[in-house]
Design a protein around this nucleic acid. Structure first.
Length: 254
DNA sequence: AAAATATACAACCGCGACATG
DNA sequence: ACATGTCGCGGTTGTATATTT
């Protein structure tokens, strides 16, 4: 469904770049460099403006440019840097090798910003409910310093559920808790359950796989216990939310 | 199955900063 | 000091694709 190319009043092509154009630009820049973007398209035989060529090169064609999904670490770094620097996308991009400012900016607007906003709203609501349920006992787990992305004052749950990141925060998250089923629990009950859980052995068949956040599994050996305990602790708000959001979900076996 | 809507990504535009003459 | 040209940044728009109704 590719739109036919359109041209501006100067006869310069606009819109999506073709493979041929990409190759022409790549070949020219690799051979002659890009000392003058304005003159470059003319010499390279491209009917594009210099700005368009520059953008195409920086975002897609230059060596080392990274495409595709953002990792959890990248998401977190962007959020933290954005909090420190604001919309200084070029500065942020310098800290993320292979990512362009434009790509980061797009990722922010299409994913991270919305996630943070939604998370903020949910968190406020959850705090209210949690304090109602057990007189503030659970709220300590919701403090920023206890969340993975505390710096951003947002719970980690949504962040690592970013569309381009491994998912953990979605309705299909599959929990098992040593075969014990605890559904429709209040925030207090959940945290009490976690307290017991931390002292219990872990099930080998439910190894927590950092490469597969979609399933919330458990550590298999003692070395993993600390990591997983931290994970549960840091995501307490997420778990609490899941229990409230999907109280009847049979998959939510905690 | 089709239409409507939402989402993600690619690209464009305007403006300020900087370099040069 | 000023004019002009170029670059780079950030905001915004356009479009393809996915999802929902």
């Amino acid at each position: 469904m590719m739109k036919s190319p359109c041209y501006d009043k100067n006869g310069l092509k606009r819109g999506v770049w073709s493979k041929e154009e990409d190759e022409m630009l790549r070949a020219y820049v690799e051979r002659y460099g890009h000392s003058n973007w304005r003159q470059l398209p003319k010499h390279a035989g491209l009917s594009r403006c210099g700005k368009s060529c520059r953008l195409r090169w920086l975002n897609y064609l230059r060596p080392g440019v990274k495409r595709g999904s953002y990792t959890q670490e990248e998401d977190q770094l962007i959020i933290n840097l954005h909090q420190q620097l604001g919309n200084k996308w070029s500065s942020i991009a310098k800290r993320l090798p292979g990512r362009s400012d434009n790509e980061i900016k797009n990722h922010w607007h299409s994913h991270l910003k919305k996630l943070l906003e939604r998370n903020h709203a949910e968190k406020s609501e959850l705090k209210t409910k949690a304090s109602d349920n057990c007189e503030g006992e659970a709220t300590k787990y919701l403090e920023p310093e206890n969340t993975l992305l505390g710096l951003a004052a947002a719970s980690s749950s949504d962040i690592i559920s970013s569309e381009n990141s491994p998912h953990i925060y979605n309705s299909s998250s599959n929990f098992s808790f040593g075969g014990e089923s605890v559904v429709n629990a209040s925030a207090c009950e959940i945290f009490e359950e976690f307290g017991d859980f931390w002292t219990q052995p872990f099930l080998p068949e439910n190894i927590y796989d950092p490469n597969n956040y979609n399933s919330l599994n458990y550590a298999a050996n003692e070395a993993d216990v600390d990591e997983y305990s931290s994970y549960i602790f840091n995501n307490a708000d997420f778990l609490c939310h899941e229990m409230q959001e999907f109280p009847e979900d049979p998959k939510m076996d905690i």
